[in-house]
Nucleic acid binder design. Structure first.
Length: 119
DNA sequence: TGCTTGACATAAT
DNA sequence: CATTATGCCAAGC
């Protein structure tokens, strides 16, 4: 039930508006999981989603602005089509301009389009 | 109970 | 800018 790390992740993904995308790291941070490595769990959580879910999992992509290459060929392609269907354009390299389509949650948390972590 | 894999991220080359 | 190597944590077997 609610309270699980997965539920928090799903809750965040559900807030992603149509036509916008979020990165795994961004979702992880918004879900309360911070730091490197947590992003990996986001993919795991989404993969655990049951069929027929209402969670817009396809709006979650990697930090490169690219659809993560998955083990099953074709799945990533389907994700790309879903995004294109929402008005998101991909360039020849299969990447999306994150600066333009990245979801910017306001008031709820930071993750403003600023680089996260100075080195 | 312990090892391997994984829808990633970051730093280095 | 692309690729390679390493780190992190949890779930699956």
């Amino acid at each position: 039930m609610a309270g699980s790390a997965y539920e928090r992740v799903y809750a965040v993904v559900r807030r992603i508006p149509r036509g916008r995308v979020a990165t795994y790291g961004q979702v992880a941070e918004l879900a309360g999981l911070r730091g490197p490595g947590r992003a990996r769990r986001i993919g795991y959580a989404l993969h655990a989603l049951p069929p027929g879910t209402t969670v817009p999992w396809h709006r979650v992509i990697n930090a490169r602005g690219e659809v993560s290459p998955r083990r099953r060929p074709g799945e990533d392609l389907a994700q790309r089509l879903l995004l294109q269907r929402e008005g998101i354009r991909f360039d020849a390299r299969g990447r999306v301009p994150l600066a333009r389509v990245r979801w910017r949650p306001r008031g709820r948390a930071r993750a403003t389009g600023r680089p996260r972590r100075p080195r």
